[in-house]
Each structure stands twice: as structure tokens, then as C-alpha cells.
């Protein structure tokens, strides 16, 4: 799955994601965890130290739970890398970044239909007024 970053699509080797349940079974550092939409992320917080990457699943671009999960993880103090992973479309890129995601892992089919310039355009849109005020 290509990773959308601000410099372009990156084709990374697939990260070895573990599940939330597996977290308690290991003490290894630098873990990558994949989180589904129905997981209570406060259960992950005690393990933040050994996690370097959390990928939040988007089973469908119309399922917006991941945006709130990202906010929640940030509030709980997670400062590793946060990715949205699954069916996300370019039009959601700015929203994903605004909710705290560092990058987006998209499937090949979407990457083919929506080349990088569409993601760049989305990231450069004018912010809605309230966001501008809160940012400024």
C-alpha cells in the first residue's frame, strides 16, 4: 500500500502490524499496531512507550470513526507516527492531517485513480473560517 506523504507516494515494504490484543504479549520496542474502528484506544495508552507506529483502519472512506480515534490518541499523548490506513480518498487528506495523522496508507486501486497531485491539491485548500481563527 503506497504511503501518501507531503513529498509524494512512497512505496514502503509492508509494515509488520500487530493487533491490539498482541500488544500485551510482547515487550519488544518499535512496534507497529493496527487499530480497528471499534477499539477503545485508552486500552493502548499504557503501551505507548513501545509503539512507534499506529495505523488506524478505514474499512470505507465513509466510516469516519478513524478521525475521532486519531484525536483521541493524540489527546492520550501518543507521539509516535500515526497513519490512516485503508480506503481513504484524496478529498479527505486535509481532514486526516487536521485530526493528527502524519500520513495515509492507501490501496493501490485508489492510488492509481487519484495520483499525487490530487492529494497535494486537497492539502492546499483554504481552511474553513473557524479553523483559520483557531489556528491564527
Amino acid at each position: 500500500m503506497p504511503l501518501v506523504t507531503k513529498d509524494g507516494f512512497q512505496h514502503l515494504p509492508e509494515a509488520a502490524y500487530i493487533t491490539v490484543d498482541q500488544l500485551t504479549e510482547t515487550d519488544e520496542p518499535w512496534l507497529a499496531v493496527e487499530v480497528a474502528g471499534d477499539v477503545d484506544v485508552s486500552a493502548i495508552a499504557p503501551h505507548f512507550e513501545k509503539i512507534s507506529l499506529i495505523a488506524v483502519q478505514f474499512p470505507s472512506f465513509a466510516d469516519g470513526r478513524g478521525f475521532s480515534i486519531a484525536r483521541h490518541l493524540k489527546r492520550l499523548g501518543f507521539d509516535g507516527e500515526l497513519r490512516a490506513r485503508g480506503h481513504i480518498i484524496a478529498d479527505q487528506y486535509a481532514h486526516a492531517l487536521a485530526c493528527g495523522f502524519d500520513g495515509v496508507e492507501i490501496n493501490d486501486e485508489v492510488a492509481e485513480r487519484q495520483p499525487f497531485d490530487q492529494w497535494q491539491d486537497a492539502a492546499n485548500k483554504v481552511l474553513p473560517p473557524y479553523r483559520q481563527k483557531m489556528a491564527g
Binding site: 472512506f61 465513509a62 469516519g64 478521525f67 484525536r71 479527505q92 486526516a96 487536521a98 473557524y130 479553523r131
Partner: peptide, 13 residues
């Protein structure tokens, strides 16, 4: 209205 307009977290409820 201002707060909810394109609120990045709440567009896919």
C-alpha cells in the same frame, strides 16, 4: 455553523 463547517473530524458520521 462556523465550527461545524468542514469540521475535519465530523464529516463522515
Amino acid at each position: 455553523r462556523q465550527w461545524s463547517t468542514e469540521h475535519p473530524e465530523f464529516l463522515y458520521l
